[in-house]
């Protein structure tokens, strides 16, 4: 089972970076990771990833980039605290594809929707064994 609170607490600066990445790659989906110390449940290190699919409806981490990033996290005693991607024409809710691939039980799956130019939807989920649980997002200026 995931540990930590049933809530994502995240620094505003990181939210802004995710949204900026989603906007920059629109209309293709953007994706990436925020790493944090193992067991801390605290997202700290922003790692934008290449969408190997370069698609408006699908994303996939490039397997070699993922290998390097995952090894680096391992070396630094980090884990993927947040795994994010954007939906560019639909709401920020996990699709069936998202659920079938979700395989980091400790991660917060963040979805942003860039479908509207004026505002952005930013939502977070746990996806464990095929079950989607939305959780509140608490945006803080800095971690206490």
């Amino acid at each position: 089972m995931p540990y930590g609170e049933a809530m994502l607490t995240i620094a505003r600066e990181l939210v802004d970076k995710i949204v900026a990445h989603g906007r920059a790659d629109h209309p293709d989906e953007a994706c990436g990771v925020i790493a944090g110390p193992v067991g801390s449940d605290r997202p700290e290190r922003f790692i934008p990833m290449e969408n190997a699919e370069r698609s408006p409806t699908f994303y996939r981490f490039d397997s070699m980039e993922q290998f390097r990033v995952w090894r680096e996290m391992d070396d630094r005693d980090e884990e993927p605290v947040v795994i994010y991607h954007s939906h560019t024409a639909t709401e920020a809710y996990p699709s069936r594809t998202d659920v079938s691939y979700a395989s980091e039980p400790n991660a917060h799956y963040v979805l942003v929707s860039t479908a509207s130019e004026d505002d952005v939807e930013f939502r977070s989920y746990r996806i464990v064994e095929g079950v989607i649980t939305e959780e509140p997002v608490k945006i803080v200026e800095a971690y206490g």
């Binding site: 409806t57 699908f58 981490f61 996990p94 691939y101 980091e104």
Partner: peptide, 12 residues
């Protein structure tokens, strides 16, 4: 040998 879950998904 390293095994990693593929990270993928999308609107469809």
């Amino acid at each position: 040998v390293t095994v990693l879950p593929a990270v993928a998904g999308g609107a469809r």
